[in-house]
Design a protein around this nucleic acid. Sequence first.
RNA 1: GUCAGUGUAGCUCAGCCGGUUAGAGCACAGCAUUCAUAACGCUGAGGUCGAGAGUUCAAGUCUCUCCACUGACACCA
Length: 514
Amino acid sequence: MKYTITTPLYYVNDKPHLGSSYTTIACDAIARFQRLSGNTVLFLTGVDEHGQKIERTAESKNLQPQLHCDEITKKYKYLWDKLNISYDRFVRTTSEEHTSLVHQFYSKVLKSDDVYMGRQSGWYCVGCEEYKDVDEADKKPICSIHKKELEWRDEENLFFKLSKYQEQIEKLIQIDGFISPKSRKNEIINFVSKGLKDFSISRVNLKWGINVPGKTNHTFYVWFDALLGYISGSLYDQNFAELTEESLCNWPANIHVIGKDILRFHAVYWPAMLLSAGMKPPLSVFGHGFLTREGQKMGKSLGNVLDPIELLEYGGIDAMRWYLLRDIEFGEDGDFQMRRFVDIVNSDLSNTIGNLLNRTITMSKKWFNDKIPIDNSLVAESPLKVQSEMKINEYIQSFKVSNFKNAANAIIDISNSANLYLNDRAPWKLIKDIKNKDIVALDIYSVLESCRIIGILLNPFVPNLSIRILNQLNIDSSTINFQKSLHWGLLDPDKGLQDPSPVMDKIEFNENSV
RNA sequence: GUCAGUGUAGCUCAGCCGGUUAGAGCACAGCAUUCAUAACGCUGAGGUCGAGAGUUCAAGUCUCUCCACUGACACCA
């Protein structure tokens, strides 16, 4: 089966922040999960580089827009690299191929007779890139968000006949699972039920954008341009942009993961655009929540922005990925707390999981010199087996609906059970009587099996740590997959183990570290 | 302003159609302890369930009012 997942195409107005890292990490986890589940995955990310805001930002930096975009794009790629993001494609909306594709798409929309010239006038905020409703008496209205004076605009724009797709969109968004989480689905339904209005797809007097064929001084509105990045990223041959059904791989996308602020574009405008071009809408859209920091909104004015690079340097990649996926309800807003970050990571990864692996390997080496003499017919008897099968199922079901928290909890449950099992059985006491050696061997083997399962299940969350765990068990992590590797009893007792060494160092709490 | 949602231990959250002393994990304290990364385990201390009123034999769980936060109310990456 094919599986396509996308992050948003991030706006390169500024360097990547924690929010975009969060989205991308979540997508990476899903992509890895799908690959391990045996699907052919297309994991697409990229950047949205056009628009007035970027033009002006570049200007203020005294840079050509393209150079500004290059600079920021580099930072995104650098960060994704640091976070071990396994994306397959990185789309840039300033690429030639993308431009060509936008033109081809546009001509399809034209053929459907869905574009007309209209007039739009009103007070416009460049920061928001939108027209604002203001008090008519106000001669110098100010944008409530940007605190800057609005500009009066009266321009001819091309409009897209969104209203034509009212019924089709209504049907689409009703489909179970199309919009997640549910609370947001209701908002969109509510919004659409009020009646869809056409929206503008071009801007005049904006140079930094893709030109509209046949309309000099019109460029495409950033949204029209940016959404199409998903299509250009899906081309079989990235260097040959031809918009036909055969030229696309893995379309439609299975899921667009986005921040809640841009849900409407993805759940309403975008499907309508695709329908207009005779293409299939995406299968689902997931709008996740926003992150605050210690209870406060992150923002430049407050000076409390948490730089993902700094966090990464402080806690490490596994800590960062684990915390974001494990502790924040995906879909809801979440609060980043440094104290909690340290506690959760240390407790879960170092104490519960890391220590379990460490103590078990130590015993194994000490008493059996790696070669654990087990009776294979008894392997299936372990009480840990039953429990782990249950938890594996929970994990998979949770992951399928992007419930990272529950999936992570399933892993922790397996680890806790294994730790408890050891304490119950107390092999260190049993082993004092040599007659118990077989029993002890079986117990140790069972716990090692749990460790192996844990190592595999951790892979989508924390790939680096997963590899370290599997390495200690002498398992080649590149060969694992869920169908084959999650059966109980696959650890080869004769293959030996690596010398134990902590797979996860503890983070020391330091309030002012980041 | 209108409409939604949320508000439960220090932190993150469970609590279904109302029913005995309100739960979990983390953090904290004590005990125990080496197979282990001062880890694992056991025990314990933490809550007038946002505030107020009402319905009921009985409310965290239903109704109303209020407060706080979040979101939607059309073109904000």
